[in-house]
Amino acid sequence: MKKITTLAIILLSVFSLQAKKVKFAVDMGTYTINPNGIHLMSDFQMAIGLAADWDPSTLSLTQEGSSSIYSVIVNIPAFTKYEFKFVNGIYGYEAEFVPDQSRVGYSFNDNRWLYVDSLKNDTTFVGAIPFSGNAPAGKKLIRFLVDMSNETSVSSNGVHVAGNFQAQTWNTKNNILYSFGGGVYEVIAYAPAGNYEFKYYNGNTSGDTETVPASCATNNNRTHNLIADTILPTVCYKACVSCALASVFEY
């Protein structure tokens, strides 16, 4: 029994060292709140000690004061991609409808997703997402996609994007991109409507930046005028177009 207890303590300690606090919050707006409460169903429920993943009834969110926002903070392993949905009730059919811009999208996957990339002693929080919506109040969603297929290698520090859309502008470490496959890396960010400049980085330092071709550059940067929730076109790293077209133009 003592050996089992010791092993459990060791495993818990290892998990704690690798875990990250993440806050999930949903703004229910004018939706009528189900008497059974607001819940989160996800693929990390077993990782936090619940009986099963994707159970819509076991991970409750708590109302923040008298507001329309409900939230929960969980400790989950870092350096992992997670999928989830908010539920107005306790049954799967009461889950939200996730808009195209926010969903995984591949293979008809309609879950929300988040990549946890940090072990910093803080709490990752992107803001309260509207139920069945895209972006926190006062902001728009922007989904960055870059194809690294033509690069000899991808940095072990990951692929990043930085620009003046960030709260801490041009921070090359804050927005890491995740790949669902095919050499394409992406991340969802949120910013107020506005005209933004940005670049992709094969790594996480200013020296790892791409050189944006003059034909699609402003101040040597990529640009986008963010007026609505947007999935940007997939571009080839260091190019203005897709990697398929970039390869054609090169020869």
Score class of each variant (00 low, 15 high):
residue 203 G to D: 04
residue 83 E to C: 13
residue 87 V to R: 05
residue 251 Y to H: 15
residue 202 N to Q: 04
residue 29 G to C: 07
residue 62 T to D: 14
residue 79 F to S: 06
residue 97 F to M: 11
residue 210 E to Y: 04
residue 6 T to V: 12
residue 185 Y to M: 06
residue 131 F to I: 07
residue 221 N to V: 00
residue 136 P to A: 13
residue 157 N to Q: 10
residue 161 V to D: 12
residue 83 E to A: 15
residue 177 L to I: 03
residue 195 N to A: 14
residue 13 S to M: 10
residue 116 V to E: 05
residue 101 Q to S: 14
residue 171 N to R: 05
residue 25 A to P: 04
residue 72 V to K: 15
residue 20 K to M: 12
residue 214 A to K: 00
residue 114 L to Y: 08
residue 192 P to A: 05
residue 107 S to Y: 11
residue 115 Y to N: 06
residue 68 S to H: 04
residue 35 P to F: 09
residue 148 M to K: 08
residue 77 P to Y: 10
residue 186 E to I: 00
residue 201 Y to D: 07
residue 30 T to C: 05
residue 212 V to P: 07
residue 149 S to R: 15
residue 16 S to I: 05
residue 174 N to W: 01
residue 140 K to N: 10
residue 32 T to R: 14
residue 82 Y to E: 02
residue 70 Y to W: 14
residue 18 Q to E: 02
residue 56 P to T: 13
residue 57 S to R: 10
residue 229 D to N: 15
residue 233 P to R: 02
residue 55 D to Y: 08
residue 17 L to K: 06
residue 94 E to A: 03
residue 219 N to M: 09
residue 40 L to F: 04
residue 95 A to C: 07
residue 215 S to T: 14
residue 224 H to C: 03
residue 247 S to I: 02
residue 106 Y to Q: 09
residue 24 F to G: 04
residue 122 D to W: 08
residue 209 T to E: 10
residue 95 A to Q: 14
residue 189 A to N: 03
residue 219 N to I: 00
residue 9 I to N: 02
residue 165 F to A: 02
residue 229 D to A: 12
residue 163 G to M: 05
residue 126 V to N: 09
residue 235 V to R: 15
residue 115 Y to M: 04
residue 65 G to D: 10
residue 43 D to R: 12
residue 23 K to M: 13
residue 226 L to E: 06
residue 136 P to R: 12
residue 122 D to C: 01
residue 138 G to N: 11
residue 140 K to H: 06
residue 143 R to V: 11
residue 84 F to E: 01
residue 248 V to I: 15
residue 94 E to I: 00
residue 245 L to C: 02
residue 184 V to R: 12
residue 175 N to H: 06
residue 168 Q to K: 07
residue 67 S to W: 07
residue 236 C to N: 03
residue 246 A to N: 14
residue 161 V to I: 14
residue 246 A to D: 15
residue 27 D to Y: 08
residue 187 V to K: 15
residue 130 P to D: 09
residue 199 K to T: 00
residue 86 F to Y: 15
residue 138 G to W: 11
residue 130 P to V: 07
residue 47 A to F: 02
residue 61 L to V: 04
residue 18 Q to R: 03
residue 127 G to H: 07
residue 162 A to K: 06
residue 38 I to K: 00
residue 73 I to V: 15
residue 227 I to V: 13
residue 51 A to H: 08
residue 152 T to N: 10
residue 13 S to G: 12
residue 12 L to Y: 03
residue 246 A to G: 02
residue 73 I to W: 05
residue 212 V to F: 08
residue 31 Y to C: 01
residue 57 S to C: 09
residue 234 T to Y: 08
residue 142 I to M: 15
residue 51 A to I: 09
residue 56 P to N: 10
residue 226 L to V: 00
residue 219 N to T: 07
residue 83 E to P: 02
residue 220 N to V: 05
residue 114 L to T: 12
residue 30 T to W: 09
residue 168 Q to C: 01
residue 66 S to G: 06
residue 248 V to N: 12
residue 154 V to W: 01
residue 100 D to I: 14
residue 188 I to A: 12
residue 209 T to L: 05
residue 82 Y to L: 06
residue 210 E to K: 03
residue 143 R to A: 04
residue 163 G to D: 07
residue 57 S to E: 13
residue 43 D to E: 10
residue 8 A to I: 01
residue 153 S to C: 02
residue 116 V to G: 03
residue 148 M to S: 08
residue 44 F to H: 03
residue 249 F to I: 07
residue 216 C to T: 02
residue 198 F to N: 05
residue 151 E to Y: 06
residue 220 N to D: 14
residue 194 G to C: 08
residue 111 N to D: 13
